[in-house]
Computed example of a mutant assay.
Amino acid sequence: MAFVDFDYRRRFTEAMKPQVPPDALRAARSLAGLSQSDVASGCGLTRAWISKMEAGKERVLQANLTLRSFYEHAGIEFLGTLDVGSGELSGIGARWRPPPGWPERTSESAGYHTERNGVAFLAARALAGLDQLSVARDVDLHKTVLARLETGSFEPDAGDRLRQYYEAAGIEFLGWGDVSENLHYGVGVRWKPPR
């Protein structure tokens, strides 16, 4: 009797996925509003291991797949394009999974993560690997103003300056707004892909 491996295709597809880069792991955790300890307890890894993965000091495939699965189960999708010829990744980032066909169809938006503010400043800072004090100094904002913006506060002048700062650094903000409900779907960040 011959053994048939019906699970081969799934395992092969999983193994072919590129590892999620450290910057996208940091952005995903920031979008989810979790600490490294929260992620560690949720996926069975240690906090020290999460820290090393987010810093790019560890690149273990199984641990990376575990983190990818953890975030995808939470509703976050990872972004990026792999150039098969060069092996280069571009457009790296993370966002909340938007409803299918969004923004054209709104009827299927129930159960998808929404945000009141469509700009994920905390995730942008995490993607760039910057600390709060450095960003506040660079943008000439008080640290408390930056902290409020990162938690979803709407402050037009300061928010515009902060957005321009990240966009000048090559970060693109993602998401679509439903004006009638003042909700945003697919909120996230990524490095601007080359044109």
Rank of each mutant, 00 (worst) to 15 (best):
H142V: 05
T106D: 11
E150V: 01
R137N: 12
E167F: 03
R137Y: 12
N117S: 08
L174D: 05
A136V: 08
Q132L: 12
A110E: 12
S134H: 12
A168I: 10
L141K: 09
A158V: 01
A136P: 10
D160H: 12
A124R: 09
A124C: 08
V119Q: 10
E150C: 06
L133G: 06
A136Y: 08
E115T: 08
N117A: 11
R148H: 15
R137Q: 15
D140H: 13
Y166A: 07
T114R: 09
G118A: 09
E167L: 00
T106H: 04
D157L: 13
N117R: 11
T151S: 15
R148L: 15
R161A: 06
L122W: 08
G175N: 01
A120V: 02
P156C: 13
V135K: 02
E150L: 06
Y165H: 15
V139A: 05
V139F: 10
T144D: 15
D138V: 02
A128D: 03
R116I: 11
H113T: 12
L162W: 04
E167H: 00
L130P: 07
L162R: 06
L130G: 07
G111R: 02
E115N: 05
L127I: 04
A110R: 09
A110K: 10
S109R: 14
D131T: 00
H142M: 11
A120D: 08
Q164C: 07
Y112G: 03
E150Q: 05
E172P: 01
R116S: 14
G170H: 02
R105E: 10
G175H: 01
T151K: 14
V139W: 07
D138W: 12
D140K: 14
A128R: 03
E104A: 13
F154H: 08
V139K: 04
T151M: 14
V145G: 04
E108D: 05
F154Y: 06
A158S: 13
R148K: 15
G118Q: 02
D131I: 01
F154V: 14
R137G: 11
G175P: 00
A128P: 00
Q164T: 02
G111N: 07
T144I: 11
E155F: 13
L141W: 09
R163Q: 15
L122K: 14
A158N: 07
E172Y: 00
L146A: 00
E150G: 01
V135S: 02
D157R: 13
G170S: 02
L130T: 12
S153G: 11
A136Q: 07
F121A: 03
F173V: 06
F154N: 08
T144K: 11
L146E: 01
A136L: 03
